[in-house]
Design a binder for these strands. Structure first.
Length: 349
DNA sequence: AATCCGTGGGC
DNA sequence: TGCCCAAGGAT
């Protein structure tokens, strides 16, 4: 099984590998900095979404040392919109650790990689395999799906993670390990997809237990998810001389370390809506809806003119360059429309 | 072990 | 609209 599966997969990969910006040409060695940066960005994030951000980061900070010396606020701003902002904070911490404790060069063992901030079991294995050619068991969501189908694993995720790891280990070859890992992920992304797997094009079809059963799409089995709650809150648009007040959110927690509009707590029932940055006659500025991973939010914008003690006054005309997380960027148009005469109606949406 | 942590696209 | 999903990690 091992030899059959890995040989078939590698042959398929040689003919069908995706051409991605962080990938070395066949036969060339990959740059650990680019591999690591891409792996962090790709955590729970699509290739399509990562593309422009990867290009931007490589342009601004072409080397690990450049990133280690970067201003943290600039990095957070460059990351804005990509989500999971702890990744950006850990990115900086990791770059600085590598420069301070590893002479600016990546450690090449899984165990050492695992010690770095933002690097967990998957990323340590991926960097060890792809950047350094080490044998490592690389298991991401794609691999879990491919392996669950290949062996028709009946146990549901997430409980089945340990079993899927062991099964992946059992088919992981000793050579071309980086290619094998990327081949598994390419297969999962392009052929062995969640909904309608293209088994007719799959190099592992004749070995696949789920295929033999007749309904491969029913794998991997998953335990049902709990419905996510809906929350409500207020955000505040405080305007003064063509500028609006922004604040930096606390380093930890939701949207940690990011610039934002001042806001109330977000709760399941309409809380009082405190958190206003000033005493003012707040007016209704409309609302937006936004879906986070674990709750849905309706955010009402409250608008006023006035002064405030603390915060950053940002020119309204340049708010797009402030680096606001998407949930707040959605409010920009509402704030700008406030107190302008309604052209037709301000009620849409 | 379970929860928290963003966003955009597909259906 | 709503749910699922995407190269997961930290606590």
């Amino acid at each position: 099984m091992l030899v059959d599966a890995s040989n078939a997969l590698l042959a398929w990969y040689d003919a069908n590998r995706r051409d991605l910006p962080w990938r070395a040409m066949p036969g060339e060695s990959s740059d650990p900095y680019r591999v690591w940066l891409s792996e962090i960005m790709l955590q729970q994030t699509t290739v399509a979404a990562v593309g422009p951000y990867f290009h931007k980061f490589i342009t601004y900070w072409p080397t690990m040392r450049a990133l280690a010396e970067a201003d943290e606020a600039d990095v957070m701003k460059a990351w804005a919109g990509l989500g999971y902002y702890a990744r950006a904070r850990n990115l900086i911490a990791c770059a600085r650790t590598i420069v301070a404790r590893h002479g600016g060069r990546f450690p090449d063992s899984e165990a050492e990689l695992l010690q770095l901030p933002g690097v967990g079991r998957y990323t340590a294995a991926a960097v060890a395999a792809i950047a350094f050619g080490r044998r490592a068991v690389v298991v991401d969501g794609n691999v879990e799906r491919v392996v669950a189908r290949l062996f028709a694993v009946k146990e549901p995720l997430p409980g089945a993670k340990a079993k899927l790891y062991d099964l992946t280990d059992s088919i992981t070859p000793a050579r071309r390990n980086g290619d094998f890992a990327q081949a598994m992920m390419d297969l999962g992304a392009t052929i062995c997809t969640p909904r309608k797997p293209a088994c007719g094009f799959c190099p592992l079809a004749t070995l696949c237990a789920a295929r033999a059963e007749g309904d491969p799409a029913r794998y991997p089995v998953k335990t049902p998810k709990v419905a996510k709650p809906r929350r409500v809150g207020h955000a505040y648009w405080l305007e003064r001389d063509g500028a609006v007040l922004l604040v930096r959110r606390p380093a930890k927690g939701l949207l940690g370390g990011m610039l934002a509009f001042p806001s109330s707590a977000w709760e399941e029932k309409v809380g009082a809506g405190s958190g206003a940055p000033a005493q003012a006659e707040w007016q209704d500025g409309g609302s937006i809806d936004h879906a986070f991973t674990h709750f849905a939010l309706t955010l009402h914008l409250r608008c006023a003119e006035g002064e405030a003690g603390e915060g950053i006054w940002w020119p309204i005309a340049q708010l797009e360059e402030a680096g606001l997380p998407t949930v707040f960027a959605k409010l920009i148009a509402r704030g700008r429309a406030w107190k302008k005469p309604p052209l037709l109606s301000r009620q849409e949406a």
